[in-house]
């Protein structure tokens, strides 16, 4: 296949970026999107040009690092798929493809398509943990959990923290991500001790990181590679309402690291 690529180039965090055009020939429909990017970079390097910087790690859809917006969609046109799992057969010969970084104030561009998603780490640090008794592993069936709760917690735990929800949201809100973390731990007894404090601290941290608020448009679930549902946002709202009504402890946003 022959493709016309429009790629965002930005030499550094404070540099001014621009869209750069590249023609790429002999792209196999069997290659993955990232292999196509590798091919582009090899060509650029052979011409002595700077390759396009982009994030990737596992290339099997589980680490969440391959952040790109492809033709206006985070992770491209396929549903429930990360960029690394997207294949070039999703496109046809002669197609034009626009490739841009995730856009959010909280995700500053580091270089080209690479953005800093440290804000997500800080949200998790603010409350996405549990108190556990260390030592020998507990008996597996000691704490029974209803099947439906276990399933819901598991659905939420599928979140890989890729940031596609933020990238697609008209408000650059991290609500779907945050709700997955809160809902996961709210559905299992292990999350009980910090339950109230967790949601307050994580919400406060989301604000401190300059993410937007949720308008419930539903776009995030559509682009989420793990298809995290809107029901988790429901859970987040309920957990938050409960926490501000019944818990007097102060939320602690880590504003120092919010950049």
């Amino acid at each position: 296949m022959k493709l016309k690529l429009h790629v965002w180039r930005q030499s550094g965090p404070h540099a001014k970026g621009h869209i750069e055009e590249h023609l790429l020939d002999n792209v196999s429909p069997h290659s993955s999107f990232l292999e196509m990017m590798d091919q582009l970079n090899e060509e650029l390097q052979s011409k002595g040009k700077e390759p396009v910087a982009f994030d990737s790690d596992c290339r099997e859809g589980i680490c969440g690092s391959c952040s790109m917006v492809i033709n206006g969609r985070p992770h491209g046109p396929w549903k429930g798929t990360t960029t690394c799992q997207l294949h070039m057969r999703a496109f046809k010969d002669g197609d034009e493809i626009w490739i841009e970084p995730f856009r959010a104030k909280a995700f500053p561009v580091v270089k080209d398509l690479v953005v800093d998603r440290g804000a997500f780490d800080r949200i998790v640090q603010a409350g996405g943990y549990i108190t556990v008794r260390t030592g020998s592993a507990p008996e597996a069936n000691l704490t029974p959990i209803p099947k439906s709760d276990a399933d819901t917690a598991f659905d939420a735990a599928a979140c890989i923290g890729c940031g596609a929800c933020v990238a697609v949201c008209k408000n650059a809100s991290a609500t779907l991500f945050l709700s997955a973390k809160v809902s996961h731990l709210a559905h299992v007894p292990q999350g009980e001790p910090e339950r109230m404090k967790r949601v307050k601290s994580m919400v406060a941290q989301m604000d401190a990181e300059t993410f937007g608020a949720c308008t419930n448009t539903g776009d995030c679930t559509q682009v989420c590679p793990k298809e995290i549902g809107q029901n988790h946002i429901n859970t987040l709202n309920r957990e938050y309402l409960r926490a501000i009504s019944f818990d007097n402890s102060n939320a602690s946003a880590n504003t120092g690291s919010a950049g």
């Binding site: 429009h6 965002w8 856009r103 104030k105 408000n171 993410f211 937007g212």
Partner: peptide, 9 residues
């Protein structure tokens, strides 16, 4: 404010 720069496409 959460998205100072939008998408080209």
């Amino acid at each position: 404010l959460a998205r100072p720069e939008g998408y080209a496409f």
